[in-house]
Design a protein around this nucleic acid. Structure first.
Lengths: 207, 207
DNA sequence: TTTGTCATGTAAGTTGTTACATGATTGG
DNA sequence: CCAATCATGTAACAACTTACATGACAAA
């Protein structure tokens, strides 16, 4: 137990794990998969990081692990759940105002590098970014269709999940539109002619 | 000189510094102030980080520093500029496709924590976030008015700066709208009665 | 007199990434 | 047989943050 005064400004992965375990107890492996989707769209983590933080949270008494035998068939797994202290910690955290953090964007820095680098390569990169974010937007929209067909009637537990998804949808849509704006401006600048406007319909569907 | 094969997947601060020094030579202190605004809206760094990376880049031959005496009045300062190798490195980097990175959002995680924490505190936090992002949006819009009154006639050097600013404007506007959507949904859920709709017009905003 | 700006740094810690490792089982 | 999945870990490093330090000068 190393209970120096709890610093709320860090340990965001710990908070994400607290939320995820509050939703449903899980093993490190389970959490790793959750961080590949769902909550992972807003906070990523590798399994190495997750196991390290789980060990610390266990030592701090925020969670408890229970070993489940794999029955000889599968490897043993340790399923963690929140302790009372963990629930308190989670509630306390929700009472803290969230710090403003700059959204770092290497891509934005690269766009600014245009006068000093390879212009056409950067334009190609913008198209690549657009495609990737359009795909992610499609994914989110399909997810919304499947899980939240009637947003007006969501329960208190479901509503926040939907709202976060809405944020993802807005973000991806904004990103795609930004790319289109850049391509239009750069196209217009290069050709001076009719701008072949990038199609604004997302390309990929499904899942 | 530690010239192991250059790993393009990291060292984003190095790239941001390359861009900033390409725009204009600067001391560590100058860069620190630039990272408080302008390029700093898309990549932040503290002075400790900057001095450390400057030292490494100098050792790697990407930049050279020239000591300027403060004339007894001010402290000496070391002004850095790109070397030929630095310019090449910068150009090479612009040829790399930018990796997709998840935009981490502690705030989104906190919204999802609503069923397990202090609901009204989180609603207050949403309002706080909205205010902060509305203020940032105002700042960007004012910046656009001042520096880019006629976007149609931008030079090749100015255009990318404006495009990045456009991205910032879109992002902040999207964030504000998302907060409004959440507040409307949560308001409606709590009162069941006439929803006192959160004003969907940004408060201090022109345009 | 105290605060703020200029200008640069050291030290120590936390967080995040990458590479590597183990060992069993299931599906093609 | 080979690849993928399940499940957990160690080691090393890179990136980022926070605290602390120095010393001059200018303005309140």
């Amino acid at each position: 137990m190393h209970l120096v005064a709890y610093d709320t400004r860090r340990m965001s992965l710990e908070h994400a794990i607290l939320v995820s375990l509050a939703e449903q107890p899980a093993s490190g492996y389970d959490l790793t998969r959750r961080f590949d989707k769902s909550i992972g769209f807003f906070w990523t983590a590798t399994h190495q990081q997750i196991y390290r933080v789980l060990a610390r949270m266990d030592a701090d008494g925020l969670i408890t692990g229970k070993r489940h035998s794999g029955g000889g068939v599968r490897p043993d797994r340790t399923v963690y759940r929140l302790t009372g202290a963990g629930q308190i910690r989670l509630t306390e955290w929700t009472r803290e105002p969230t710090a403003e953090t700059t959204q770092r964007s290497e891509f934005a820095v690269k766009v600014r590098a245009m006068p000093f680098g390879d212009r056409s390569a950067i334009v190609a990169d913008i198209r690549r970014q657009r495609a990737a974010h359009a795909a992610q937007l499609d994914y989110y929209l399909a997810d919304e269709q499947r899980h939240f067909p009637d947003p007006a009637r969501l329960s208190g537990d479901e509503l926040p999940v939907w709202l976060v998804l809405r944020g993802g949808i807005r973000q991806e849509r904004g990103y795609v539109e930004w790319c289109d704006e850049m391509l239009a401006a750069l196209d217009g600048e290069m050709t001076t002619a009719t701008s072949k406007l990038a199609r604004s319909t997302p390309t990929r569907e499904k899942v």
